[in-house]
Nucleic acid binder design. Structure first.
Lengths: 90, 90
DNA sequence: TAAACATTTAGATAATTATCTAAATATCTA
DNA sequence: TAGATATTTAGATAATTATCTAAATGTTTA
């Protein structure tokens, strides 16, 4: 969970997640959306991968990245937990 | 929003939020829960305050901190947005 | 008003991280 | 198999951040 929060603390990485929300994309396609070198994007992809927020699969020359919605939901659960407590105080 | 995510990337700060979920607490009460100096906790409280995730109000000698659930919900909304997209793809 | 208490601010240091360039790895195609 | 393409890894550097001690600020009470 800590890895996830750390991964999400960077705006570039959150933007990558939003890109992957729509459809799976290769590392190159992802990199195109940013004014940053490919190695830097690769570094960010690694952080997201370490947190299991995204999944990678090689497809020929490309590596296709996809969103791991399960883990996104897990993190969202942390927030739900914060919000919901207090409800049962009635 | 970036401030919020940055603030949430630290485990101490997330623990502080969980403490405030149950009830409002003074800076001293919060500090008691951690093996860390009060200035360090103050630094973390500042980060949370900068993100508007918590609110502070002086009460005599103490400063009482409380959770700003509105902002917590806003951040949770970011996750909802990630998850919900794809639903309307049917 | 002086002493005590609660908290923050300032300044220093060590650790982490974001980014770059250069080089390595993996795959495809001619 | 050689060259082209896609991506990552390595190594360096600059910026950010977490933490500490010491000092300052604000409040209460005797």
């Amino acid at each position: 969970m800590n890895e996830s929060f750390k991964a999400l603390s960077d705006p570039t990485r959150r933007a990558i997640i939003k890109l992957l929300r729509d459809k799976d994309r290769t590392a190159g396609e992802i990199a195109e959306h940013f004014q940053m070198t490919k190695p830097s994007i690769s570094h960010h992809l690694n952080a997201l991968k370490a947190a299991k927020l995204i999944l990678d699969e090689r497809q020929g020359q490309n590596i296709m990245y996809s969103l791991n919605t399960t883990v996104v939901q897990e993190v969202m659960g942390w927030f739900m937990d914060i919000i919901k407590k207090g409800e049962d105080e009635t």
